[in-house]
Amino acid sequence: MSSLVAAPTPGVDRDAVTAWMGSLGVEFTGTLRFDRIGLGQSNLTYLVVDEGGRKWVLRRPPLGQLLASAHDVAREARILAALGDTAVPTPRVFGLTHDPRFTDAPLLLMEFVDGVVVDRMSVAESLTPARRREIGLALPRTLAEIHAVDVKRVGLDDLASHKPYARRQLKRWSRQWEESKTRELPDLDSLTARLVAATPEQHELSLVHGDFHVRNVIASHETGEVVAALDWELSTLGDPLADMGSMLAYWTEAGDAGTGEPAPTALDGFPTREELARVYLEETGRDPAALKYWHTLGLWKVAVIAEGVMRRALDEPQNRAAGGTPTVEQIDALIRTALQVADEAGI
């Protein structure tokens, strides 16, 4: 590839970023090419390729006017750097800059990790059922590694509040619901009250990824093991079971009602939610009953987030995501599922 085909890329000043990479001591050949990758709606991700075929990944906040979200990339860089010497699989960080000579927003340059990202149906369909199962079962093992990190030793003890995580989550997302709801939903209000009444005591504090699911990891082509966990900008300190509960909430099985379009994890081969939970609990020795609470809270939180996405799309059609907008039927189905899990858990 040459400079003749290097088209401008929104969000990236090619010459400035090239100069920054040179200042970091990163070796590259010829003109760099920047291409948007991934389906994420928060931080923007670019694949950087030189004329010799070497690759890197660049991250920056979304375009437009931003407030605190501009801090997310720096937060992600800090966490990735801290995890570099742990068992958690993460890409290596090459640099972070806020320098206006190079960028109008924080930029994070990190290692390109080759592998499989199951972020769309076509990718899942290209895998054998055996490989799907390997990838699925690797997820709870990776979460166990994340939750085993000694946050003091790696310098992340001050990453976030040490106050009880369940109360923090309920307060935050209840406020979000009130600000974004499109209708009254008594079932959600009832579920909120039940979650508040059953709030568990916090017995341990760990690193929490905050957005751990199959689309946010890279798996090995050869073994299905997770070779990189991605998207750490929502990471915090809290109850480790929160991550597993959220992952179960996002995990769709064949036969789940009200989910809309078919989900990759519903294909033959991917493990069930019960299998995922069993692997995690066997790895960590944590309480199965407590996980039920966090699974319920995870479903409640996903429903609140989906309502917000739907509200923004109604208010401004340009906010509609390419992958589709949640519907009232899908959100109501999430709440019904959450109520069922809560009933089974005695919440």
Rank of each mutant, 00 (worst) to 15 (best):
V5C: 10
A6G: 12
A7M: 15
A7Q: 15
P8Y: 13
T9A: 08
G11F: 02
D15L: 07
D15H: 10
A16S: 10
T18P: 00
A19N: 14
A19Q: 13
W20A: 15
W20Q: 15
M21W: 13
M21T: 13
M21Q: 12
G22S: 15
L24Q: 15
L24M: 14
G25T: 15
G25I: 11
E27I: 12
E27W: 09
F28R: 15
G30L: 10
G30M: 13
L32P: 08
L32A: 11
R33M: 13
R33Y: 14
F34D: 09
F34S: 10
D35C: 13
R36L: 13
R36E: 15
G38Y: 10
G38H: 07
L39V: 13
G40W: 13
Q41P: 12
Y46K: 02
L47S: 13
E51K: 08
G53F: 12
K55N: 12
W56S: 03
W56I: 00
W56P: 04
L58I: 07
L58C: 02
R59H: 05
R60N: 01
P61W: 03
P61C: 06
P61K: 03
G64N: 08
Q65D: 07
L66R: 03
A68Q: 00
S69P: 00
S69E: 05
A70K: 06
H71R: 12
D72L: 09
D72V: 04
A74Y: 08
A74M: 02
A74R: 00
R75P: 04
A77G: 05
A77Y: 06
R78I: 01
I79S: 03
L80S: 07
L80C: 05
L80P: 00
A81K: 02
A82L: 02
A82G: 03
A82P: 03
G84D: 02
D85I: 14
T86R: 03
T86D: 05
A87M: 03
T90G: 09
P91V: 10
R92D: 09
L96G: 05
L96D: 03
L96P: 07
T97H: 07
H98S: 14
D99N: 07
R101M: 05
R101C: 05
T103I: 10
L107K: 03
L107P: 01
L108T: 04
M110I: 01
M110F: 05
M110V: 02
E111M: 11
F112N: 14
V113M: 03
V113T: 12
V116C: 00
V116L: 02
D119F: 10
V123N: 09
A124H: 05
A124N: 01
S126A: 14
S126M: 14
L127V: 06
P129D: 03
A130P: 02
A130H: 14
A130I: 09
R132V: 05
R132A: 07
E134G: 12
E134S: 11
E134P: 02
I135V: 04
T142K: 06
T142I: 11
T142S: 11
L143Q: 00
L143V: 04
L143A: 11
A144G: 07
A144F: 06
I146M: 03
I146R: 01
